[in-house]
Simulated scan of single mutants.
Amino acid sequence: MSQPAKMWSFDAAIERGAHRTRAQIVLHTPDGHEFSGVGLALRTGPEQVASYLALGRALSDLTEELVEAATAELDVEAGRTPHT
């Protein structure tokens, strides 16, 4: 029998400046942890393109943070010294 789905939620914020766009993604886990990613893009073309690019970079940054957190937890479980 499968377990009920645990909901993870994201908040995304985009700040548009005169020359750059900044995006931040915050992931909220069911157990209360938060992970965050930030991405920047220069505004050299359409405003929407800069938003997509900044958001994509924020997601990439968030991905790296999640992989690092998973690696650190696996190291602790295995009794290894965390990477520094």
Rank of each mutant, 00 (worst) to 15 (best):
V38F: 10
I14L: 02
T84C: 07
R22C: 13
L53D: 14
I14V: 14
A58T: 08
L62H: 06
H19E: 13
D61A: 14
S9Q: 02
A69Y: 13
L59Y: 11
T71A: 13
A23S: 14
R57Y: 04
G37K: 02
L40P: 01
A58N: 05
E15Y: 04
W8A: 14
Q48A: 07
L27N: 01
V67P: 03
G45T: 10
L53P: 00
G32F: 01
H19Y: 06
T29E: 01
Y52E: 15
L55D: 01
V38N: 04
E34F: 11
G17D: 08
A50H: 05
P30L: 00
T44Y: 03
A69P: 10
L59M: 12
L55T: 10
I14H: 01
S9N: 01
H19T: 14
H28F: 11
G37N: 07
G17Q: 08
D31S: 11
R43Y: 00
T71I: 13
M1A: 14
H33C: 14
S36H: 11
R16I: 06
H19S: 12
G37Q: 05
V38R: 03
A23L: 09
L27Q: 03
D61V: 00
A69M: 09
G45V: 02
E77K: 09
A58I: 10
M1C: 08
L59T: 05
A50I: 05
A69F: 12
T29N: 04
M1K: 13
S51C: 14
P82T: 15
A13M: 01
E47N: 06
H33A: 14
S51K: 12
L27K: 02
A70Y: 01
A18W: 03
R20V: 08
F10W: 04
Y52S: 14
I25N: 02
P30K: 00
E68Q: 12
S2L: 11
L42S: 09
A41T: 03
E15P: 00
A78E: 15
H83E: 09
V26L: 04
A41F: 00
E15I: 05
A12S: 09
G32E: 03
A69R: 13
G32D: 02
E47W: 06
P30G: 01
L66D: 04
W8Q: 12
L40S: 03
L53K: 08
S2I: 03
A70C: 06
V67T: 13
H33I: 02
A12V: 13
E68F: 06
L42E: 12
D75T: 10
R43F: 02
G56K: 04
A41E: 10
E73G: 10
H33R: 15
E64R: 15
V76G: 01
A5M: 15
K6G: 00
K6E: 15
G37M: 07
T21E: 05
T81N: 08
M1N: 10
P30C: 02
S60E: 10
H28R: 09
R43T: 08
E77V: 05
A12M: 11
V49W: 08
E77Y: 05
Q3P: 00
E68T: 10
A72M: 07
